[in-house]
């Protein structure tokens, strides 16, 4: 589904990703861990198509399509979703209106007829239940005045509504208390199917207790330096990132 090959990315002349490889197949959940500054969020942003980054080499293909050729909205329309680490506020635009616009744009792109209003409302209610989000939050302006936890839950709610085939969760666990974390994780688990895939980016393995990954990768200094299963995450939890840093410090350029 997602194929990243030898991806090299820089920001303002500074190289952040230095040849990253990652393959995600449908039905899989991948966790990407790593110390601060290893390039985790850069990876998420580049996949989604944020313009501040320069791709110096490599490729990202998604369902066989070259993503680097597509604009951010086209990537989203292809079925890619990014749950932001810091979701932005859009004053005056209600979440419902926002999602209605997004869904109709995506459907149009895929050659589908617009969704009937009553179907939309039905789906809306269903998904609100799935992610345990209060109806009044969706009536309010997108993220405006939301607490950190509410913003994150709103991201998962939007993911539920848009039904992407690949969702990237960028440090969705950061700033969440244990209850909020559980709600978010439960939402994700309910949305897991054989047809979709998740990339969970996180600093701590805490989230992985709730969202059990099939694969865990350690990102360090712009490369995936270790891949394994859930046990790798536990090992990291036990030993911290220092042993990774020690082991791979010679990679530093």
């Amino acid at each position: 589904m997602l194929e990243i090959k030898d991806l090299k990315v820089s920001v303002e002349g500074k190289q952040i990703l230095k040849g990253l490889n990652l393959t995600v197949k449908k039905g899989e959940v991948h966790a990407i861990m790593g110390p601060n500054g290893s390039g985790k969020s850069t990876l998420a942003s580049v996949i989604a198509g944020k313009e501040d980054y320069t791709v110096d080499g490599g490729s990202i293909t998604f369902n066989g399509k070259d993503m680097l050729e597509l604009s951010p909205d086209e990537r989203a329309k292809e079925g890619m979703f990014l749950a932001f680490q810091y979701p932005v506020e859009i004053p005056g635009v209600s979440t419902i209106n926002f999602l209605k616009t997004a869904i109709s744009e995506i459907r149009q792109y895929r050659g589908l007829p617009p969704m009937e209003a009553k179907d939309f409302l039905k789906v809306l209610k269903e998904k609100q239940k799935v992610v345990e989000i209060e109806a009044n939050l969706t009536g309010r302006s997108v993220n405006e005045g939301f607490s950190g936890g509410e913003k994150k839950r709103n991201e998962i709610f939007q993911m539920a509504m848009l039904e992407p085939s690949l969702a990237i969760l960028d440090e969705t666990d950061s700033g969440l208390d244990i209850d909020a974390l559980r709600i978010v994780a439960t939402g994700v688990n309910k949305l897991r199917t054989k047809e979709n895939a998740f990339v969970v980016i996180t600093h701590y393995q805490r989230l992985l207790e709730y969202i059990v990954p099939d694969f865990v990768h350690v990102l360090y200094q712009g490369r995936i330096v270790k891949s394994g299963t859930r046990e790798l995450a536990l090992e990291l939890e036990g030993k911290g990132y220092d042993w990774i840093k020690k082991e791979f410090s010679e990679l530093a350029v």
């Binding site: 909205d73 989203a76 979703f81 990014l82 005056g92 616009t101 302006s141 939007q158």
Partner: peptide, 29 residues
């Protein structure tokens, strides 16, 4: 905000529509 436009893009809304949406939101009151 460019971040607002990017956020909309990421949800499948192209830049032109995103701008319309944000401006309408700005004028909502």
């Amino acid at each position: 905000g460019e971040d607002q436009i990017f956020y909309c893009n990421q949800r499948g809304i192209d830049t032109e529509k995103a701008i319309g949406l944000i401006v309408n939101g700005y004028c909502r009151e």
